[in-house]
Each structure stands twice: as C-alpha cells, then as structure tokens.
Nucleic acid binder design. Sequence first.
DNA 1: CGTTTCGATCGAATCGATTCGACCTCAGAG
DNA 2: CTCTGAGGTCGAATCGATTCGATCGAAACG
Lengths: 379, 379
Amino acid sequence: MSAPEQARATLLDVAERAGVSRSTASLAFSGAGPVSEATRERVMAAASDLGYGGPDPRARSLRQGRSGVVGIVFDESLLNAFRDPVNVQTLDGIAEGLGLDSNGLLLLTETGAVGTGIQSAAIDAAVLMGCTPVFDRVVDSLGRRGVPIVSIEGGARDGVVDVGLDNAAASETLARHLHDLGHRSVGVVTLGTDVSRTIGLITPEREAGITAAVTADRLEGVRRVFPDAVAYSAGFNLVDDGVRAGRELFAAADAAVAAALPDSPASDAAGGEGATTVLAAHPTAIIAQSDLLAVGVLQVAAERGLRVPDDLSVTGFDGVRIDGLAGVDLTTMRQPAAEKGRAAGLAVTELLAGRPVASAHFECEFHIGDTTGAASTAR
Amino acid sequence: MSAPEQARATLLDVAERAGVSRSTASLAFSGAGPVSEATRERVMAAASDLGYGGPDPRARSLRQGRSGVVGIVFDESLLNAFRDPVNVQTLDGIAEGLGLDSNGLLLLTETGAVGTGIQSAAIDAAVLMGCTPVFDRVVDSLGRRGVPIVSIEGGARDGVVDVGLDNAAASETLARHLHDLGHRSVGVVTLGTDVSRTIGLITPEREAGITAAVTADRLEGVRRVFPDAVAYSAGFNLVDDGVRAGRELFAAADAAVAAALPDSPASDAAGGEGATTVLAAHPTAIIAQSDLLAVGVLQVAAERGLRVPDDLSVTGFDGVRIDGLAGVDLTTMRQPAAEKGRAAGLAVTELLAGRPVASAHFECEFHIGDTTGAASTAR
DNA sequence: CGTTTCGATCGAATCGATTCGACCTCAGAG
DNA sequence: CTCTGAGGTCGAATCGATTCGATCGAAACG
C-alpha cells in the first residue's frame, strides 16, 4: 500500500533514509558486527517506512557464495517418488539433519530429459535419491561447478559420498531365514530394474543389465541362498504393482505345473534338484523387495485362498509403518530410513564446512513377524 | 581433476581464453543474441578446458531479478505433509503447471517457529499449501518483497490468489445423499481443526474456533443437513487417525446409549427428536472428511462387526486412489487435486508474467460407491 | 563507387547486497 | 595530559553474471 508499484526499496535507500551508510545498514540487518542500539532502531524504522522486506536473497547469495539451498534430485516424477514412504522418511530425515543451516530443499527431477533446472538452480549441495545411470550426467555437471554431492543408495561413485545399506547382506538374511524354515521353492518380487521400469519376468539377460543398485543388490543377496529363484519385477514400489507381479508369478507357476504334469508322469521329478524344480512347482515363499510389494503379495495370497504363513511365507523389506495396515506383522528387514536421511543431511553440512566425509552404511534390523513359517510339506 | 582446488573459473576467464569479450561469451552460453558458430565453439572449447560448468546461477538470478524457483510452503512437517496423497497429487500438478519455466520447487515449512528460511530464500513466487493463521505472517513478509502468492484451499485473503473447492457445498451433497437414504443419526470424523491438531470431540466452543478453512467448510456443509451431528476430530489425515477417531466416536455412543437406557425406561425416547437423539443412539452413518479417514472408519466398522452399508454407511472425501485398497468403492466427492495444482502452477506463471489472475474454484464429482445405503430401521 | 543495412562483437553500466580495512571518537589507564 | 584500545561507522572493492547502446566490417543495393 505504502509502496504501490514504484521501484522497490533497496538497502541503500533504507540507509540514506536512516542517515547511515550502506555498510552500517547491512550490519544492522545481519546482526554481524557491532552496531549501536539507537542506530539499529533507526535503520529498522526507515525500513518499515519504505516497506523494505529485508536484504534481497539473490544479492546476498551472490556475495556470500552460497544460497543455503540443498537440491534433492529424483529420477522419477514427484508423484511416484512420494508414494514411497521410504523416500518421504528419508526426506524428512534430511531436513532434520540439515537443521537450521538450510533455507529449504529444492526438489529437482532428472528423468533423462534436458533438465535445464538442475543446471541453473542455485544450490549449495545436492542429494541424489536413488541411483540410475541418468545421474552420471548430474554428477558431472555439478562436480564441475564444485557442488558437493551426497547420494542415497547410489552405490560407490567417484567423488560422491554415499549413504546406504548393505542390501545384499540384509536380503541374504531374509533368504536364509526362509531356507532354515525349509523353503526350497521361492519367488522374488523385485523393485524396478532400470529407468524403463518394465514389469515382468526377470530373465538372466535382463538380470545382468539391472541398473538400479538397490534392486540388483537385494536380488544378489537372495541368489546366494536360492540361485534359481524366479524373479518378477514390479514397476513402482506400490502395493498395486506388488499385486500385479504376484499374480503373474503365480500364474506362471500354474502354467509350469500344468505343463510339467502330463510331460513327466513320474511325479518325483517335482522333488528333484535343479532349475526345473523352481519353475515347475508353486513357490512356498515369496521374497518381496519392499514392504509395499509384500502387502501386494499378501493380497494375492488371500485371493488364491492361501493361508499365510501356513501355505505361503512372505517377507518384505524396509520396515515401514504402512498406514492403514496395522494388523499385519510382516517379516522384514527394518531399515533406518530417517537416520539415513539425517546422515545425508549431516554429510552435506560437513561437506559445506569443508570437512571431509566418508560414505556411511547402516544396518538393517531383522524382524520376524507372523508372515513366515515352516515350509509346508504337504504340497 | 583439471582444476584441483584453485579459484573456480568465471565467465571472464573463459572469455579471455577464447579471445572474446565477456558479453560475447555470455551470449554464447545463453543463446540470446547472434553469435557466429565459430565463436560459440571457441567459447565452449575454452569452457571445457577450464572446467567451467556454466554461468553461476546466483549471479544470473541477481542480474535477471528472478531465480526460477517457486517456494512451496507447508504448515506441517514434510513427513506429515507427504503422507496425504492429495498434497502429493497437488504438488505434482504444480510442477506440471509450471512447466519448464521453473528451476524447481523449494520446500519450505512454516510451523510457527522463527523460520529464517522463508525470509532468505530466493524465490520468485510462493504457493501456500493449506491454511492456518500462521500464514498471515508469511503473506506479509513475502508481500513486502513483492513475491506473488498463490494459496491452495487457503480461503480468501487480501492480495492472494486462491485455488480451491467449494468444500461446504460438496460436503452438503454427501450429507444430503445420506439424508435421502433415511439417515438421521450421523457422526462426522473431521480433519485437524487447528495448528495443535488436538484429537477428540468437537464441542460447540471448539467448533467456533476452527482455523483450518477446509475442516470448517466441510463441517459447515454437513451442518446444513444435520445440525446436531456429533463430530470427532482426527489429528492428521491418516487411516490410523481415522481408526482412532472412529473408535472414540462409537465408544462415546456406547456410553450414551448405556446411560440413556436405565434413566428413561420408555424406550421411545430414543426415537424422539433433538440433540439427545443423536447422542443417545449409535450413528447409522459416518461422514469422514477424507478418504483416508473413511478407510479408518471402515476398519472400525469391521472391528465392531458392522456390515457396510447394511448396518453403517460411510462417506469419504477426495476421491484418492488409495494404494492397496483397490477393492473398496467408497462413496465420496472426487476432487481434482492434480488440476488444482496445475491451476496453481499456471497462476504462478501468469503472475510472474505480470498478468492478473483471479482465484479459481473447482467442482467435485459426486461418486456413489457401495459404502452407502438405506438407513437400517432395525436398530 | 558511395551508402545503407545487418550481423557480430565489444565496453561499460548494473543487479543489491557483504565485508575488509581505515578512520574517528571517546573512555580509561598510565 | 597523553597514549592506548575498543566500539561504532564509513568507503570502496567485490561477488559473476546480463544487457543496452555503440562500434566495426562486410555484403547488398542503387
């Protein structure tokens, strides 16, 4: 109201009106340096008169060489990124880890398109969420600008601090648990394998080309125990995609069993060893690479009238509290997502302070719920 | 590698190495203005030699007077904000509405704390998600700086473009639907009422002091049809909070019914009119102010052995696709959350272009699912 | 052959602050 | 009375680009 649309007041205007120099006015606002109380009040009064809203962040960030903004880079649309509770928890942890040093988190997406945003965003540091080869370009570009980078589950990369889990080991623990319970025929429902997020059976060729480190590592952990387990990839980390993958996995088993029966009259073939065993029998356990996918598998089990864990054991991963599914106690590996975020936030703080930071790895906690049990021998 | 840790190259360095002036080098990078192909290549080669990663966004934004960043302001922690699918959809819509003009969305939270971030963030415009009085300060502060503001469901505010729904009318539609089905005793499960998000019964005094516009408007819509409906407030928009509020609501009804029986031996008192009717009888319908809360209520119904919609009708609001609950077809008002976001994004674009923008209101679509039916007379 | 025109390039001003070193003044110590 | 020191203030340099108006050369035109 007081300043309709004429040129906005600058710190110089304020200083002149208060009868002091620019530098003194600046000190009055920033609080750095000694300024007498009387002067400060005069400056503030002048600012108020002129409708001055404080120093321009753009100018300040140019002079200071930092903006206080940390970029969060996703490799998928925000819509999908935020559907995954782990991402949300991690983000919250990052915000906490950065504390009050930060002026906010800048959401950026690098989906493979041109992505002008990431080039021209005034960020002091970047956190890469997830890991696809798409990020190589981002790492290059930011590295050239001297922007420190922290990746979450991004795997080892040159000049990048990584925060993650030992996914393979954690996954192996789950697999071994099932093996100990007597399971021999297991299926795996995996997360997306690459940028395309193709849904469907993971053939050996496809498995070799998995670019998503988390997916690859968790699958590798399973392979150490069940080298021949059939794996189906879900597209996104969603319950519904888990349902879809679960249905397909069982349908494939149905077909394989049906095909095996007439061909080999000797039913003991189903008890033999080798890849055919896995393919030609219904799985007694499903290892899902996330809790959301596991919940989808549980729904498929219900559809097919399979009792869990009597007829089918199911494991998840993440240990997220799934809103609205309080009743289910899933056997899973609980990962400290918020802590990972916090660690990433702290790492950013350290890097910005010029201190060196090492990559950090977190432990998962093995939680045995009531979705796993002894393999049924009656099948 | 090529530039270890010596002073980072600037555009001037690049220009000198390429044998051109600063201005020409700038034009070569920005693409504005005519530059010969040979010169451009020479500049790019020099940049590459020096490990120059493009113009500094800070300097650019100072000179141009804009950063390309749009602030998204929440009144709660990011963790809670992103648990609400409506927020996520809206955010995605905003990103889409802004298109390629934007360099990213800056997440800011104003929870009532000092919030230095919002003051010193270089944003061109701001979108306020939700609406609490806390935002008054934000509006002031940003307005003084000349930053355009768009609010989502923020209600009318001076100098702020608002994008929202006619929540009262939409809510009234649901209530009338239930009334038409013969329901007379209904309960309401509401969203948070204010910053404190206190869970529990909404007394008349408390109802008068609701500061969350969405909650107040939706409740008002119900009141037009059921003036005496009992309302319980859930804290956050979560299934689990819906479960909790639903349980309390039914427990309160249990108590009221038990208290009414011995006192008034004439059981026809339960069929009379007035506030006591509502309080002294179990509700035959529950109006939840969101789908997530409605799902919680459905779970409570299952707990108590109530069949839906035979024994109890339930309505929601939002029309979100709830991951993992594909089977339920909720009666609800579907709101175009993504469209709202898109409209907000477009509004920001227009405002930044200096064009005037009017507040916009969107229509909800009434969806009758299978969770509402005729009121049971047998109770 | 002189003039116009247009494309390419350059110089200098500008964006709005922060910050360093210099300077001044006044109080207290010697 | 003088010297010292510290608090308070100021001037000027600086951050790294964008952009406007001027300049210059060559091609096109009459």
